[in-house]
Design a protein around this nucleic acid. Structure first.
Lengths: 226, 226
DNA sequence: TGTATATTACTGACTAGTCAGTCACAATGC
DNA sequence: GCATTGTGACTGACTAGTCAGTAATATACA
């Protein structure tokens, strides 16, 4: 298990008062356990053990298991928004190809680790039972991400580098592929045996290049560029 | 609720003995309830009610809740394999574009309804807890689908109609997009508000055309065709 | 054809176990 | 001291799985 370190008996970290970081510890553990077992399958006892606190402590900070779940998702929403803000950045006069490459590579990097997969599981498997949260997530994460990505594609179209495609559709196809590939490259995934031989970074690059080439304007279409 | 039809009071279907069709009734109900609430969140009582039988009846046909879950997934695996066999069919000397179009349209049609979404939820959210089933699903459904689709792409590349892309990668990107779009077009999905204005068939067509154009060989690349 | 008897499908109250949430008490810091 | 933070045994609601009993059908015999 992951609980306390060996010297907990002497220093007893678990009882050290640290009300500032308690909620974060608990939320970290909760994401792990919810992501692994789903909402109904997760035991608060397990979350407490993972967080290194007693079960009662959880209910000191979150009134119900449901509230804890919502807090986990909300924190994730905030994190994703902050990611997006950072990525918005500076296109400069970079070519659309290069900008999209950087943008997607960045995006792929933020979904690294089991963290993103767990969140994907929660969003796909549990969020529909919390309509309010789902709407929040839809507008604050999904819609934003799609709009942002589609604006990058749009820019490429306007510069004549990309073929005239519905930018929103392209954005959705690209995010689908990146998310699903993350999910599939997890050892416990049913798709794993088929892609386990590819290393994660290589997979990211392959995806990026696939979509960049997918969007590339055919030479014949380039009539409107110098 | 969805239980028995109005005349159940008079004819009392629930008490009618029908050992032949019981397992199917139960499996249908189970897919609904598991798909809606996940494994842990599903109550056998609810499954029984939906199937129009008493709870005990379920355990007459399936020893445990776990076995019931496995049976649901297994039946779905078989159904998917049969779908795939049917789609394999006759390319003739059709152009790769047309063949891929027909193939994908067909594929999109088989994932219609909430049925496929529920299955997607189970596969993404629950299957990792049943490694044996996951492996089974991986080899018998996912691997098959990818191989099949990639062979269609491969054919297009060989005919010079498609650009020289890794066919397996293309297959995975295409399936990701189709699956995720199905999931996102569900009213309860967080992505729903963004794509609800598109009708399902139109969405399918858009996806098909997007990927066909994505794969199209650039005129300049066509050196090896007549 | 009706009626007694056997067989099989099904039922639902019950049991044993689980787990979210509580609370009386303990430890810590000021 | 005494206020704040944390603990873990406890409770009560809930649910997978059981099983004694009931009802539908099949078979036997007249």
């Amino acid at each position: 298990m992951t609980i306390a370190d060996p010297d907990s008996a002497t220093t007893d970290h678990r009882r050290r008062r640290d009300p500032e970081s308690r909620p974060q510890q608990i939320l970290d553990a909760a994401l792990e356990v919810f992501g692994e077992h789903g909402f109904a399958g997760a035991r608060t006892d397990d979350i407490a053990t993972k967080a290194g606190v007693a079960k009662g402590t959880i209910f000191l900070y979150f009134p119900t298991k449901d509230d804890l779940f919502k807090a986990v998702v909300r924190r994730e929403i905030v994190a994703r928004i902050e990611d997006a803000e950072q990525r918005r950045a500076d296109a400069g006069d970079m070519s659309a190809r290069d900008f999209l490459r950087i943008f997607l590579t960045n995006y792929y990097a933020t979904t690294q680790g089991t963290h993103a997969l767990r969140m994907l599981r929660l969003v796909m498997g549990e969020l529909h039972k919390h309509p309010e949260l789902a709407r929040f997530y839809g507008t604050e994460v999904i819609a934003r991400a799609w709009t942002l990505l589609s604006s990058v594609v749009q820019r490429g179209i306007e510069r004549g580098e990309f073929r005239p495609v519905d930018p929103m559709l392209a954005a959705r196809c690209i995010t689908s592929a990146f998310l699903m590939h993350r999910a599939w490259s997890e050892p416990s995934s049913p798709g794993f045996p088929m892609i386990s031989h590819i290393d994660s970074a290589q997979l990211g690059n392959d995806l990026v290049e696939f979509f960049i080439d997918s969007l590339a304007a055919h030479p014949a279409d380039r009539s409107h560029t110098p």
